[in-house]
Design a protein around this nucleic acid. Sequence first.
DNA 1: CAACATGTTGACCAGTTGGTCAGAATTTGA
DNA 2: TCAAATTCTGACCAACTGGTCAACATGTTG
Lengths: 224, 224
Amino acid sequence: MVEKKQIRKSAHRIGNRSVRMRNTLKILSAAEKVFAEKGFDGATTQQIADIAKLPKSNVHYYFKTKRDIYLALMQSIMAPWLESFQAISVDDDPGDALTGYVKRKVMLSRERPLASRIFANEMIRGAPVLSDFLRNELRKWVEEKTQIVKQWSEKGKMDDVSAAHLFIIIWAATQTYADFEVQIKSVLGRQNLETDDYDAAAELITRMVLRGCGIHGDHKVNQT
Amino acid sequence: MVEKKQIRKSAHRIGNRSVRMRNTLKILSAAEKVFAEKGFDGATTQQIADIAKLPKSNVHYYFKTKRDIYLALMQSIMAPWLESFQAISVDDDPGDALTGYVKRKVMLSRERPLASRIFANEMIRGAPVLSDFLRNELRKWVEEKTQIVKQWSEKGKMDDVSAAHLFIIIWAATQTYADFEVQIKSVLGRQNLETDDYDAAAELITRMVLRGCGIHGDHKVNQT
DNA sequence: CAACATGTTGACCAGTTGGTCAGAATTTGA
DNA sequence: TCAAATTCTGACCAACTGGTCAACATGTTG
């Protein structure tokens, strides 16, 4: 039954794809706003439908449940996170690697603040959806990076710091510019955060990270 | 009318206080859990009532609306925040002052993680309740500290860093141990965070802050 | 064109929401 | 003891919740 439908679907895929994809994206984009501001429990399908400019029943045609919307959204949110994972290897110079990592994380905060807030909400709730990701992918990644940091420190390239705590602090410092944007605008006395503000943030975070790790040398944030 | 009631109230205050206070605290304690996990919109008065072990209508006897509970709770949450504000003055040695500040913030994250999460939720929502606090108290405090940091750096005691960004990063790094506790437990491979973990966090954050500010000398986290 | 799949929608549902209220139970001070 | 103040609570309400569904509309493909 399901299989047959599946086949039919792929036969019609060009026409279907455009409609299906367009509406799916509209819904996910609307959901991103609502989930980011209200959290999972506070978000309503009606509000998502309104922002997507679709009747609620049409939203339910594409996603059976609110949870399904949330799951699909979470996947699209985690993709950039996972990508940034590859970025640090043993052969890198620790200064360059960490500088680049901080820079990318700050950019992500700037470009996808809503995604960052949804992730924050998920963590605050106790990660009911992402617990597997935390236990598996993330845990494994941190263990790898721990090995790399250890090798770097053995080679005298940096101090022997806890990679876990180091990355926890980097994540916190970079994501705060998305999650706590109101607070930061207020503290900086800005109407909106501009390129300069993000650059200043990246630079100070980088300096703190590098010096905190005992890494010396020239590592400008604005170079790649 | 209101005044008369007020007078009557205070005439009976001993008896009232015990009952009123006990139930008020029960409700606020329950609300702290619910608001921390669900956010304002996701929290329900029924759930708060259940955890407080009171009928919902009894909760509404003490607090007219859900928002009133939230406001009262927010006040009790902000008190320790505001206290920690006094702690840094020009006469302090910058190393000692910052070390102490980080230490206190980490302790707060450990002792009142729910409060930290409610604050985080409020910021993510765009600070609908705390916007005045951000514009006034917090802004003013940061401006004061900016002056202090400037004086410290003029005296050659530290580098000339942006106090605003510095405190933003300190807040982020310390509060993350409360807000993102699940993620951190997972990354550290712990069932629960212990004293050692918080000590390690405080020590690394302190080191990053001090070195990032170009402050040298001996500043152990475990000394007062 | 006919068939069939895909997309759209208003009406509808049972359960829950924040909040009200009348009246009963209890505590209080004199 | 007793009247007034305070505390407690079940019954109730209109609005809203996530979700279903049958009927209809719009492609799509032979």
